[in-house]
Amino acid sequence: MAEGALFEFLCRMGDNTLVLGHRVSEWCGHAPVLEEDIALANTALDLIGQTQMWLGLAGEVEGKGRSADDLAMLRDAWDFRNVLLAEQPNGDFGQTMMRQFLFDAWHVEMLAALTRSSDARIAAIAAKAVKEAAYHVERSGDTVIGLGDGTTESHRRMQAALDLLWPYVGEMFLPDAVDAAMAEAGVAPDPASLRPAFDARIGAVMAAATLTIPEDDFAHKGGKSGFRHSEHLGHMLTEMQWLQRAYPGASW
Protein backbone atom coordinates (compact mmCIF):
# COMPACT_ATOMS: atom_id res chain seq x y z
CA MET A 1 0.00 0.00 0.00
CA ALA A 2 1.28 3.45 -0.92
CA GLU A 3 2.10 5.65 2.09
CA GLY A 4 0.51 8.50 0.14
CA ALA A 5 -2.89 6.80 0.31
CA LEU A 6 -2.56 6.24 4.07
CA PHE A 7 -1.70 9.92 4.56
CA GLU A 8 -4.74 10.91 2.48
CA PHE A 9 -6.99 8.64 4.52
CA LEU A 10 -5.71 10.02 7.84
CA CYS A 11 -6.20 13.59 6.60
CA ARG A 12 -9.80 12.72 5.72
CA MET A 13 -10.48 11.47 9.25
CA GLY A 14 -8.69 14.40 10.89
CA ASP A 15 -10.07 17.10 8.58
CA ASN A 16 -13.64 15.89 9.16
CA THR A 17 -13.27 16.28 12.91
CA LEU A 18 -11.28 19.50 12.63
CA VAL A 19 -13.68 21.30 10.29
CA LEU A 20 -16.83 20.08 12.04
CA GLY A 21 -15.24 20.74 15.44
CA HIS A 22 -14.47 24.32 14.43
CA ARG A 23 -17.98 24.82 13.05
CA VAL A 24 -19.55 23.54 16.27
CA SER A 25 -17.23 25.75 18.34
CA GLU A 26 -18.64 28.79 16.50
CA TRP A 27 -21.73 28.32 18.73
CA CYS A 28 -19.75 28.96 21.91
CA GLY A 29 -21.55 31.80 23.70
CA HIS A 30 -24.38 31.91 21.12
CA ALA A 31 -26.49 28.79 21.73
CA PRO A 32 -30.20 29.14 22.51
CA VAL A 33 -29.83 27.99 26.14
CA LEU A 34 -26.89 27.50 28.49
CA GLU A 35 -27.13 23.69 28.56
CA GLU A 36 -26.95 23.51 24.77
CA ASP A 37 -24.05 25.95 24.69
CA ILE A 38 -22.11 23.70 27.06
CA ALA A 39 -23.08 20.55 25.17
CA LEU A 40 -21.98 22.03 21.84
CA ALA A 41 -18.68 23.23 23.29
CA ASN A 42 -18.00 19.79 24.77
CA THR A 43 -18.81 18.11 21.46
CA ALA A 44 -16.42 20.48 19.67
CA LEU A 45 -13.76 19.69 22.25
CA ASP A 46 -14.07 15.95 21.65
CA LEU A 47 -13.80 16.50 17.89
CA ILE A 48 -10.73 18.72 18.18
CA GLY A 49 -9.12 16.16 20.52
CA GLN A 50 -9.71 13.45 17.93
CA THR A 51 -8.21 15.75 15.29
CA GLN A 52 -5.02 15.96 17.32
CA MET A 53 -4.69 12.16 17.15
CA TRP A 54 -5.59 11.74 13.46
CA LEU A 55 -3.52 14.62 12.12
CA GLY A 56 -0.68 13.77 14.51
CA LEU A 57 -0.52 10.31 12.98
CA ALA A 58 -0.91 11.77 9.47
CA GLY A 59 2.16 13.94 10.02
CA GLU A 60 4.10 10.97 11.36
CA VAL A 61 3.15 8.79 8.37
CA GLU A 62 4.01 11.58 5.94
CA GLY A 63 7.48 11.81 7.45
CA LYS A 64 8.15 15.43 6.54
CA GLY A 65 8.17 16.70 10.10
CA ARG A 66 4.73 18.33 9.97
CA SER A 67 2.84 18.36 13.27
CA ALA A 68 -0.95 18.18 13.74
CA ASP A 69 -0.89 21.97 14.24
CA ASP A 70 1.06 22.51 11.00
CA LEU A 71 -1.47 20.44 9.07
CA ALA A 72 -4.44 22.17 10.68
CA MET A 73 -3.22 25.75 10.48
CA LEU A 74 -0.93 25.97 7.46
CA ARG A 75 -2.71 24.11 4.66
CA ASP A 76 -5.04 25.90 2.27
CA ALA A 77 -8.57 24.90 1.25
CA TRP A 78 -7.49 22.66 -1.66
CA ASP A 79 -5.41 20.49 0.70
CA PHE A 80 -8.32 19.78 3.04
CA ARG A 81 -9.95 16.35 2.75
CA ASN A 82 -13.10 16.71 4.85
CA VAL A 83 -16.49 15.76 3.43
CA LEU A 84 -18.61 18.68 2.22
CA LEU A 85 -21.20 18.04 4.96
CA ALA A 86 -18.71 19.01 7.69
CA GLU A 87 -18.00 22.47 6.24
CA GLN A 88 -21.63 23.51 5.68
CA PRO A 89 -22.51 26.60 7.74
CA ASN A 90 -24.29 26.27 11.08
CA GLY A 91 -27.57 27.90 10.02
CA ASP A 92 -30.01 27.83 12.91
CA PHE A 93 -29.66 25.49 15.91
CA GLY A 94 -31.86 22.87 14.21
CA GLN A 95 -29.69 22.87 11.09
CA THR A 96 -26.56 22.47 13.21
CA MET A 97 -28.06 19.50 15.05
CA MET A 98 -29.27 17.90 11.81
CA ARG A 99 -25.76 18.22 10.34
CA GLN A 100 -24.36 16.75 13.56
CA PHE A 101 -26.73 13.78 13.52
CA LEU A 102 -26.05 12.94 9.85
CA PHE A 103 -22.30 13.11 10.53
CA ASP A 104 -22.44 11.24 13.87
CA ALA A 105 -24.49 8.41 12.34
CA TRP A 106 -21.72 7.88 9.74
CA HIS A 107 -18.88 8.56 12.18
CA VAL A 108 -19.93 5.99 14.75
CA GLU A 109 -20.11 3.21 12.11
CA MET A 110 -16.79 4.23 10.58
CA LEU A 111 -15.00 4.32 13.95
CA ALA A 112 -16.51 1.00 15.04
CA ALA A 113 -15.13 -0.60 11.87
CA LEU A 114 -11.74 1.10 12.34
CA THR A 115 -11.32 -0.49 15.79
CA ARG A 116 -10.63 -3.66 13.75
CA SER A 117 -8.05 -1.93 11.49
CA SER A 118 -4.93 -3.88 10.49
CA ASP A 119 -3.00 -0.76 11.56
CA ALA A 120 -2.74 -0.88 15.37
CA ARG A 121 -2.27 2.91 15.62
CA ILE A 122 -5.53 3.52 13.76
CA ALA A 123 -7.38 0.88 15.81
CA ALA A 124 -6.20 2.57 19.04
CA ILE A 125 -7.41 6.04 17.97
CA ALA A 126 -10.74 4.60 16.80
CA ALA A 127 -11.28 2.71 20.08
CA LYS A 128 -10.82 5.98 21.95
CA ALA A 129 -12.93 8.10 19.59
CA VAL A 130 -15.83 5.66 19.14
CA LYS A 131 -16.86 6.05 22.80
CA GLU A 132 -17.18 9.80 22.29
CA ALA A 133 -18.98 9.42 18.96
CA ALA A 134 -21.49 6.98 20.49
CA TYR A 135 -22.34 9.64 23.06
CA HIS A 136 -22.63 12.34 20.37
CA VAL A 137 -25.03 10.33 18.19
CA GLU A 138 -27.27 9.62 21.17
CA ARG A 139 -27.62 13.32 21.87
CA SER A 140 -27.90 14.55 18.27
CA GLY A 141 -30.46 11.82 17.48
CA ASP A 142 -32.55 12.71 20.55
CA THR A 143 -32.44 16.40 19.60
CA VAL A 144 -33.52 15.70 16.02
CA ILE A 145 -36.47 13.71 17.40
CA GLY A 146 -37.34 16.37 19.97
CA LEU A 147 -37.35 19.20 17.45
CA GLY A 148 -38.77 17.23 14.50
CA ASP A 149 -41.67 15.94 16.58
CA GLY A 150 -41.98 19.27 18.39
CA THR A 151 -43.91 22.39 17.45
CA THR A 152 -45.10 23.26 13.94
CA GLU A 153 -42.25 25.76 13.70
CA SER A 154 -39.50 23.40 14.94
CA HIS A 155 -40.83 20.63 12.66
CA ARG A 156 -40.76 22.97 9.65
CA ARG A 157 -37.17 24.01 10.38
CA MET A 158 -35.95 20.44 10.88
CA GLN A 159 -37.55 19.27 7.63
CA ALA A 160 -35.93 22.23 5.84
CA ALA A 161 -32.55 21.30 7.39
CA LEU A 162 -32.89 17.67 6.29
CA ASP A 163 -33.86 18.72 2.74
CA LEU A 164 -30.89 21.11 2.62
CA LEU A 165 -28.29 18.68 3.98
CA TRP A 166 -29.43 15.38 2.47
CA PRO A 167 -27.50 15.92 -0.81
CA TYR A 168 -24.29 15.95 1.29
CA VAL A 169 -24.89 12.49 2.80
CA GLY A 170 -23.93 10.42 -0.24
CA GLU A 171 -20.30 11.59 -0.33
CA MET A 172 -19.54 9.85 2.97
CA PHE A 173 -20.29 6.47 1.39
CA LEU A 174 -18.86 6.88 -2.15
CA PRO A 175 -15.65 4.85 -2.44
CA ASP A 176 -12.66 6.05 -4.48
CA ALA A 177 -9.08 4.88 -5.12
CA VAL A 178 -7.89 5.85 -1.62
CA ASP A 179 -10.74 3.90 -0.02
CA ALA A 180 -10.03 0.90 -2.27
CA ALA A 181 -6.36 0.89 -1.20
CA MET A 182 -7.36 1.12 2.48
CA ALA A 183 -9.91 -1.69 2.17
CA GLU A 184 -7.42 -3.85 0.26
CA ALA A 185 -4.86 -3.48 3.07
CA GLY A 186 -7.47 -4.07 5.80
CA VAL A 187 -6.82 -0.58 7.18
CA ALA A 188 -10.35 0.77 6.75
CA PRO A 189 -13.73 -0.52 5.58
CA ASP A 190 -15.20 0.12 2.13
CA PRO A 191 -17.35 3.18 2.99
CA ALA A 192 -20.25 1.73 0.97
CA SER A 193 -20.40 -1.16 3.46
CA LEU A 194 -21.39 1.28 6.22
CA ARG A 195 -24.53 2.45 4.43
CA PRO A 196 -27.05 -0.21 5.59
CA ALA A 197 -26.37 0.45 9.30
CA PHE A 198 -26.48 4.21 8.65
CA ASP A 199 -29.78 3.94 6.77
CA ALA A 200 -31.31 1.82 9.53
CA ARG A 201 -30.40 4.37 12.21
CA ILE A 202 -31.43 7.38 10.13
CA GLY A 203 -34.71 5.71 9.15
CA ALA A 204 -35.66 4.98 12.76
CA VAL A 205 -34.78 8.46 14.00
CA MET A 206 -36.48 10.32 11.15
CA ALA A 207 -39.62 8.23 11.60
CA ALA A 208 -39.71 9.06 15.32
CA ALA A 209 -39.02 12.71 14.42
CA THR A 210 -41.94 12.68 11.91
CA LEU A 211 -39.51 13.89 9.22
CA THR A 212 -39.46 12.72 5.61
CA ILE A 213 -36.15 11.62 4.06
CA PRO A 214 -35.90 13.09 0.52
CA GLU A 215 -36.31 10.50 -2.23
CA ASP A 216 -33.62 11.94 -4.49
CA ASP A 217 -30.22 10.39 -3.76
CA PHE A 218 -28.20 12.99 -5.69
CA ALA A 219 -24.87 13.51 -3.89
CA HIS A 220 -22.56 16.53 -4.03
CA LYS A 221 -18.93 15.44 -3.94
CA GLY A 222 -15.42 16.84 -4.10
CA GLY A 223 -14.70 17.41 -0.40
CA LYS A 224 -12.92 14.24 0.63
CA SER A 225 -10.96 14.14 -2.64
CA GLY A 226 -10.18 17.86 -2.31
CA PHE A 227 -11.27 18.33 -5.93
CA ARG A 228 -13.90 20.96 -5.17
CA HIS A 229 -14.85 22.21 -1.73
CA SER A 230 -17.87 24.46 -1.29
CA GLU A 231 -17.20 28.19 -0.98
CA HIS A 232 -17.83 27.96 2.78
CA LEU A 233 -14.55 26.20 3.63
CA GLY A 234 -12.30 29.06 2.55
CA HIS A 235 -14.23 31.56 4.66
CA MET A 236 -14.04 29.24 7.67
CA LEU A 237 -10.28 28.71 7.28
CA THR A 238 -9.72 32.45 6.99
CA GLU A 239 -11.03 32.80 10.51
CA MET A 240 -9.62 29.56 11.95
CA GLN A 241 -6.10 30.07 10.60
CA TRP A 242 -5.88 33.83 10.94
CA LEU A 243 -3.55 33.93 13.95
CA GLN A 244 -0.97 31.53 12.49
CA ARG A 245 -1.11 33.29 9.12
CA ALA A 246 -0.70 36.77 10.62
CA TYR A 247 1.89 35.78 13.24
CA PRO A 248 3.66 32.63 11.98
CA GLY A 249 4.80 30.37 14.79
CA ALA A 250 2.89 32.25 17.48
CA SER A 251 2.31 30.16 20.60
CA TRP A 252 1.35 30.51 24.25
Binding site: E35, I38, A39, L45, D46
Partner: peptide
Protein backbone atom coordinates in the same frame (compact mmCIF):
# COMPACT_ATOMS: atom_id res chain seq x y z
CA UNK B 1 -31.52 14.19 33.16
CA UNK B 2 -31.28 17.88 32.24
CA UNK B 3 -28.50 17.64 29.68
CA UNK B 4 -26.13 14.99 28.40
CA UNK B 5 -23.18 17.32 28.96
CA UNK B 6 -22.12 19.15 32.10
CA UNK B 7 -19.38 21.54 33.16
CA UNK B 8 -16.57 19.28 31.88
CA UNK B 9 -16.43 16.60 29.13
CA UNK B 10 -16.62 13.84 31.76
CA UNK B 11 -19.89 14.97 33.34
CA UNK B 12 -23.61 15.24 32.54
CA UNK B 13 -26.19 17.49 34.15
Amino acid sequence: KISQFGSTPCKAH
